[in-house]
Amino acid sequence: MTTLNSTPSAPHYLSLPDARPVTTQAVRAATHALDNALHEQSMMCLTADPGVGKTFTLYILCEQRPTLPALRLLPRPQARPEDLRHSLHHALNLPGDPPQDAGICDDYLRHALARPPRLLAIDEAHQLSASCIEYLRYLHDDPVPQVTILLLASRPRLRALRSQRALLSRVATWHYMEPLAPDEVLTMLPAFHPLWQNAPSRTLAHLDDMWGHGNLRRWAALTHQLQAHRRRHPGHLPDPGALLRRLQPRLAPTS
């Protein structure tokens, strides 16, 4: 299980040079939902289709709240409760190695989580085992830890979380992030990357209809291809179809 307890600048897919974070309607809606969860110290699930920007949104939310202690964990598939305990121990910067005794380790964690109020964010939460879900239930129900639990899960994998009865009655908010609306694409893309600042609206609309579908990861891949074209052909604007052909999988010729 990987621990991510710092708050670096929000990363872009493919580490695009000159890409800038943009606050979309979906990010604002997720921010509002998280504010309510933080106020209630409840459990929330943030879900979206792959590439819409769940993890990116988490970085943005943490950057907007620099005084909020945030613990961000990325579990490996079927992580065990002891993996979760050890990751929390390191994320909280507790001294020494995590105690081998689960009860003693839990006492240390409960004391460390007592104050200040914290956000515990679990990315790719659909990978959690049932026993880890039960451990999160334990942290949620215990009155000592002052923690808001945020679960991030891909929408196609959401069934794995919803099948956990321990979560169904405890997740106060199941928040779905919408892709960019077609009209929002026209305003967000020029703000996202300078390569799109002078692109005609009809070109952006065509590319979104044929490829982007309001998905930030797909638009990042398209921007990456545009950058590569500009390096090879400075000053020459590519045909949108040429960009799309580089992104579409090619079928092997049949004999």
Results as ranks from 00 to 15, higher is better:
Met1Glu: 10
Thr3Lys: 07
Ser6His: 12
Ser9Cys: 14
Ser9Trp: 13
Ser9Arg: 15
Ser9Pro: 14
Ala10Phe: 00
Ala10Asp: 00
Ala10Pro: 05
Pro17Cys: 14
Arg20Phe: 12
Pro21Tyr: 03
Pro21Arg: 07
Pro21Asp: 12
Val22Trp: 08
Thr23Asp: 03
Gln25Ile: 13
Val27Met: 14
Ala29Ile: 05
Ala29Gly: 10
Ala30Pro: 02
Ala30Arg: 01
Leu34Lys: 00
Asp35Trp: 00
Asn36Tyr: 08
Leu38Met: 02
Leu38Asn: 03
Glu40Cys: 03
Glu40Thr: 10
Gln41Pro: 02
Gln41Trp: 03
Met43Trp: 08
Met44Cys: 07
Leu46Ile: 06
Thr47Arg: 10
Asp49Gln: 14
Thr55Tyr: 15
Phe56His: 13
Phe56Gln: 11
Leu58Asp: 04
Tyr59Cys: 10
Ile60His: 13
Cys62Lys: 13
Cys62Asn: 13
Arg65Cys: 04
Thr67His: 14
Leu74Gly: 01
Arg80Met: 12
Asp83Met: 00
His86Tyr: 00
His86Ser: 13
His89Met: 11
His90Gly: 02
Asn93His: 11
Leu94Gly: 11
Pro95Tyr: 03
Pro98Met: 14
Ile104Asp: 07
Leu109Lys: 09
Leu113Val: 06
Ala114Trp: 02
Arg115His: 14
Pro117Glu: 07
Pro117Ile: 06
Pro117Leu: 08
Pro117Gly: 07
Arg118His: 08
Arg118Pro: 05
Leu120Gly: 02
Ala125Cys: 06
Ala125Gly: 07
Glu134Trp: 06
Leu136Trp: 01
Tyr138His: 09
Tyr138Ala: 06
His140Arg: 09
Asp142Thr: 04
Asp142Lys: 08
Pro143Asn: 12
Leu150Ser: 00
Arg155Cys: 02
Pro156His: 11
Pro156Asp: 12
Pro156Thr: 07
Leu158Ala: 07
Arg159Leu: 01
Arg162Tyr: 06
Ser163Ala: 13
Arg165Thr: 11
Ser169Asn: 11
Val171Asn: 02
Val171Leu: 09
Ala172Leu: 01
His175Trp: 02
Tyr176Asp: 05
Pro182Ala: 13
Met188Thr: 06
Pro190Glu: 06
Ala191Ile: 01
His193Met: 06
Leu195Val: 15
Asn198Pro: 05
Thr203His: 14
Leu207Asp: 07
Asp208Asn: 13
Asp208Thr: 02
Asp209Gln: 15
Asp209Leu: 11
Met210Gln: 13
Trp211Gln: 03
Gly212Ala: 15
Gly214Asp: 01
Gly214Thr: 06
Asn215Thr: 04
Asn215Ser: 09
Arg218His: 08
Arg218Trp: 05
Trp219Lys: 04
Ala221Cys: 11
Leu222Asp: 15
Thr223Ala: 06
His229Cys: 01
His229Ile: 01
Arg232Val: 01
Pro234Arg: 14
Gly235Leu: 13
Pro238Thr: 08
Gly241Met: 10
Ala242Cys: 04
Leu243Asp: 08
Arg245Met: 07
Arg246Met: 08
Arg246Val: 01
Arg246Tyr: 06
Leu247Phe: 12
Leu247Ser: 12
Gln248Met: 09
Pro253Ile: 00
Pro253Phe: 04
